[in-house]
Amino acid sequence: MRPSDLLIPLPAGLYCPLADLFIDPVKPVERALITHGHSDHARAGHGSVLATKDTLGIMGIRYSEHFAAQMQIAHFGEPISINGVQFSFHPAGHVLGSAQIAVEAKGLKIIVSGDYKRASDPTCLPFDPQRCDVFITEATFGLPVFTHPDTAQEIEKLLRSVALFPERAHLVGAYSLGKAQRVIAIIRAAGYDAPIYLHGALEKLTAYYVAQGAKLGALKPVAGVAKEDLQGAIILCPPSSIQDLWARKFPDPVTCFASGWMRIRARARQRGVELPLVVSDHADWPDLQRTILETGASEIWVTHGQEDALVHWCQSIGLQAKPLNMVGYGDEGEAEAEPSTP
């Protein structure tokens, strides 16, 4: 069996003809397997969805409880057989509930890794490397300039700034699923124990994380808090809000953005960011390389991001590699569209 008999990149997503289902489809389909809850991977309107318990929980919050006609929980490491094809879910370390999906038939094994990272994250299970023949990798940060620094060190930068400007509010733009909760968890690990304020758009997902056991300390909605009480406060909001009118109601805010893109100065300045925090939920260049080698795969398919550089590197070490050129994922942002108002 050739890899292209097992999985085919179609406009709607990766398609498995033997099982007649799609993985992370960007259009409504009859049967979908979903790696994680970011909105470019997890869309509403499918007939049936197979995903981890937390991914289903997150989709329920994002859309409505009835985001699909049928939902089935996939347990990590427990294979499910569909028409002779074995599917199994393994932690991807990206956000709560995120999974790599292994697709195996007649001795050929493909891993669809979805989005993943190798850096530590107290709010989700760590990436679990799987041996395979074909590894499908994202390439959001697929250039050698992307080496994410230690996250604790970035949060230290934020806390030093809070100490230096005690009369200013620190407004931290963070994606509402995963990034915001991880940032809070690391702020807590650094010993900061004052209440952290949340933009309305972050409240539900953060509450879900807390309900699943994340230790995030005292959290308060920022709406309705008096301006003078926010001096020296840390406020988390969706990235799109840091430049909004909404941001102007805070005391002389320092605008921060927690994202892997912040490693590039021009990107930070474009966004009007004053304190860039390089915190990413995607693998950086060295981790992409390390992961590709650890899978033992001889063939690498590269999707969403800087495909060219990663394909070039794979080929330079003798691996077969090709870009998948699928549209609808990631693109410029860090993988998800955000509502701009609470």
């Binding site: 050698p144 300039v145 590039i264 060219d308 070039h312």
Partner: peptide, 27 residues
């Protein structure tokens, strides 16, 4: 110290020589 194709792609993306070199310099 670096692969010329990867340097070219990176420099093109970053747009600033000092910054590209600072980011790509091998650890």
């Amino acid at each position: 110290r670096t692969d010329p194709a990867l340097f070219a792609l990176s420099y093109d993306y970053v747009g600033d020589l000092s910054e590209t070199v600072a980011l790509m310099w091998p650890k």
